[in-house]
Design a protein around this nucleic acid. Sequence first.
DNA 1: TTCAATTACTTGAAATACTGGACTTACTAT
DNA 2: ATAGTAAGTCCAGTATTTCAAGTAATTGAA
Lengths: 409, 409
Amino acid sequence: MTARDSKGKDASYINRLNKIEVLKLIRESEQLSRAAIVKRMGLSAPTVTRIVDCLIKDKLVIMTGEGDSTGGRPPKLLQFDGTHDFVIGIDLGSTTIRAAVSDLEGNFITEIEMQTDLEGGFEKICSQLVQVIRKLILRSKLDESQILGVGLAVAGLVNFENGMIAYSPVFNWKNVNLRTELSRHIALPIFYDNVSLVTALGELVHGVGKEYKNFICVNAGYGIGAGIIINGVPFYGNHGFAGEFGHLIVDSKNSYVGKGGLRGSLESLASGYGIAENAKRNIGAHKNSKILNKANGNLEEITAKIVVDCAKENDAFANDIFDVAMDCWGIGLDALIKLFDPEAIVISGGLTKSGEIFFKKLRENILKNEFKQLKNEVQILPSSFGVDATLIGALSLVISKVLQFEVKF
Amino acid sequence: MTARDSKGKDASYINRLNKIEVLKLIRESEQLSRAAIVKRMGLSAPTVTRIVDCLIKDKLVIMTGEGDSTGGRPPKLLQFDGTHDFVIGIDLGSTTIRAAVSDLEGNFITEIEMQTDLEGGFEKICSQLVQVIRKLILRSKLDESQILGVGLAVAGLVNFENGMIAYSPVFNWKNVNLRTELSRHIALPIFYDNVSLVTALGELVHGVGKEYKNFICVNAGYGIGAGIIINGVPFYGNHGFAGEFGHLIVDSKNSYVGKGGLRGSLESLASGYGIAENAKRNIGAHKNSKILNKANGNLEEITAKIVVDCAKENDAFANDIFDVAMDCWGIGLDALIKLFDPEAIVISGGLTKSGEIFFKKLRENILKNEFKQLKNEVQILPSSFGVDATLIGALSLVISKVLQFEVKF
DNA sequence: TTCAATTACTTGAAATACTGGACTTACTAT
DNA sequence: ATAGTAAGTCCAGTATTTCAAGTAATTGAA
């Protein structure tokens, strides 16, 4: 429930609600007749006709032909058409800025990549973003009026109400407002949110969201975070800081203190960072492990990828390290399942590149801790989008606003 | 979002929404003028007048006099009036059935207590409930038409959509439908839900809910559970099984396997049951502890209360046992804070009777694991209602339906 | 004391969005 | 061909909103 909902409502509000619902239905069903909408939504036929006419006029829906008759006039099939409007999405990473223009269906028009200039501070990154946005508009050959907004995925704690980025360790930001800064140079509506939540939104709009309305999107990379979707809506918590999954304590007795002073947290033990660190700390007694080999004998070159690769080759030490991490993952996901009772958990990020070995262990370890009455109910899925997950999420940040008629109209 | 919301909406839908919001505002503010409602809600003055008239006609609101003028016509003050309608609430416990009739403001009219007959199975408990309900109506001297419904708090997994109780270990029920059974003998609307959720609802309607809209209500008793309130609405999850807090793994390395085969779960280590069991298991090496004394030398008579009492008296072994449990609590609540970002966590149940020693340790242990950026933001509060928390919750189950115009009107 | 200004609430008219019945269009089955 | 069935449209009726204007009660300053 946003601030909007607590305001008084008038007649146009319910039209908007019905429009949103009709559009959602059409988008989800690929092809759909007006009559089918009448049946599924409980609205009257005239109302549906009028709403559909409006959607067609707005160029969000097109007629794509006729369906089979069942003993009467054949239905005219409707389809979502997202090819008339465009959005910009930016994945603002600590090393790379990735950005793209896409249409509302998520088809990329242009793509740009740029090294993030961490040295220059907040102003420098803002000017990089402005530069990227301008370049994208230019290269896409679109008129600015055809672009409905800019969505950004930012690493850090984002307060969704006032647009403040409360804290971002990677960029070393505290209480900065990206929107006011960017708005000084860019006339388009600007939206941003935490990386994990944005990635989850991407799944909601273009990925598993077509099947599930209650799911959690976990980023398993160098760091760990989670974006939570409840009833098809992002879950923020009180300040917008919900889903701090990486800082969950999964092994309180562990003596290792990771970065940020966290002891026994999932991130310090089972992230890309955590796996690499654990290997570095303990390899002393396992000089014959393949890991050191692959790292060219240099401790500092050990990465999570090397550990996983060696585990796949049945290196005993690598297997131990990997198993420890996967135990932590099992406990972490178990907590999500018991507390949120989701339909699915979608996992993205570098660790998913390990492939089936990762998911297999994960499912095994979840079963180990499971609450027997909820057996096998939760789907554990890889993200549909691989490395593009966050960028597609950033695009979806704007698209979801369009689908809810919060921009353009 | 319930099934209702996915249906097409018409004008009366938004009228209902506005009525709910106006009533909520009046209830929360004790005294309020129409003009103040206009300002706070953004509705037009005529609309507010009409809605208030309707609420007065429904006997949910009364005028209680005039406020001070600030240079114009003095405002007529409105107040919530919950004295015209009544509800029945039942706390269906494994040992005791506690039930009460109250008005909509939560004032008890009559109260009944009865031993639960666990031996007789499902039918016997149903007939006990029917008996309790009939006796309550009789003793309250009310006409059945004045009672708006019956609310029950049930221990177990309740599927809120179809009313099935999927699983209840204490009663040994699997997939039973209490509503269809009770409806055969009782004409009133019947509602029920999981104990923890019901207790949370009680806090929402009559307790901390006046101050917080995002909070979690944790039951810390012989067992452990949590009811989650998000944006002033109960959070169910996919099947209605969200908040299975007691089964959270807080010490995966612990070798003890508690009831139900759970290893390292919060409930097996830190519930009333868990604390007593831990004392029983380890007292062998601490024969001189006061615990054995208070338990009359009988291992089986050791309870959590005895352990806590001894800890207060600085018994070393009792302190150890208590500290272990409190460490687990710290980790568990930490998980809730990081995943849900709530405004407050309200704790009810037997362990809170330990008093300040419990809450002090709790706050200390949460700080130990905290994510520094969210420092001290979460309120850790005892329940406002003590032993009545669940019973008041059961009453609130119906009251919340009335306040949302889902019954009576 | 009087009366304009202020604040609170009420009434009536216009606007908006839904519903449901009657009607048109278009195809199927016999 | 003709009756039957389903899809889609038109139009009057209903409910609820807001806007604009009007009434009511009090303050405060000439």
